[in-house]
Computed example of a mutant assay.
Amino acid sequence: MTTEAGAGRRSSKWSFPWRTAALVMAVGQVISAVLSRLFGGEFTSADRPGEPPIVPAGWTFSIWIVVEALSLAYAIWALPERRPNRAVRDALAAPLTVVFAGFSCWLAAAEIEPVWATVAIFAVMIAGLLRAMSIAMRYRRTIAGWPGMPRHLLWWMLGIYTGWSTIAIWVNLTTAFVGSGAPSTGPVGIVGQMAVLAGATATAVTILRWANGLLPYTLAALWALLGAVFGAIGAQQTLLAGAAAAGAAIVIAAGVPAWRHRGRIADWASGRITAGE
Results as ranks from 00 to 15, higher is better:
G128I: 02
I126C: 03
A101G: 15
A117T: 13
M125F: 07
W116N: 09
S104V: 10
E113T: 12
A132E: 06
F103P: 13
A120Q: 06
E111C: 08
T97G: 12
V119S: 04
V119R: 00
A132V: 00
C105P: 12
A127M: 04
A120R: 04
P114S: 01
I126Y: 05
I121C: 08
L129W: 00
C105A: 15
A132Y: 02
A101M: 11
A123W: 03
A123H: 03
L107F: 01
A101S: 14
S104P: 11
L130G: 09
M125D: 06
L130W: 09
I126V: 07
A110I: 04
T97N: 11
V124P: 06
G128D: 03
W106N: 09
I121V: 14
A120L: 11
I112P: 15
W106L: 14
T118Q: 06
V119C: 06
W116K: 02
L107K: 00
A117C: 14
M125H: 10
A120V: 08
I126A: 01
L107T: 01
P114I: 04
F122D: 08
T97M: 08
G128Q: 01
A108D: 12
A123L: 10
I126H: 00
M125A: 08
A101P: 14
V124S: 04
G102V: 06
T97S: 15
E113C: 11
F103R: 10
M125S: 05
V99F: 08
F122Y: 12
V99S: 09
G102S: 13
V99M: 08
G102Y: 05
V99Q: 05
T97P: 13
V98Q: 05
R131T: 13
V124A: 07
A117K: 02
I121N: 02
G128V: 00
A127F: 04
A120D: 12
I112V: 15
L130R: 03
L130E: 11
W106G: 09
A101I: 10
I112R: 11
A108G: 14
A117V: 13
I121K: 02
A109E: 05
L129F: 07
A108W: 09
E111P: 06
S104T: 10
L129S: 05
G102E: 11
V119E: 06
A109N: 09
A109K: 00
R131E: 13
L107Q: 01
I112L: 14
L130M: 13
V119T: 07
E111Y: 08
V115D: 13
E113P: 15
A108M: 13
G128M: 00
L130I: 07
A132R: 00
V124T: 05
V99T: 10
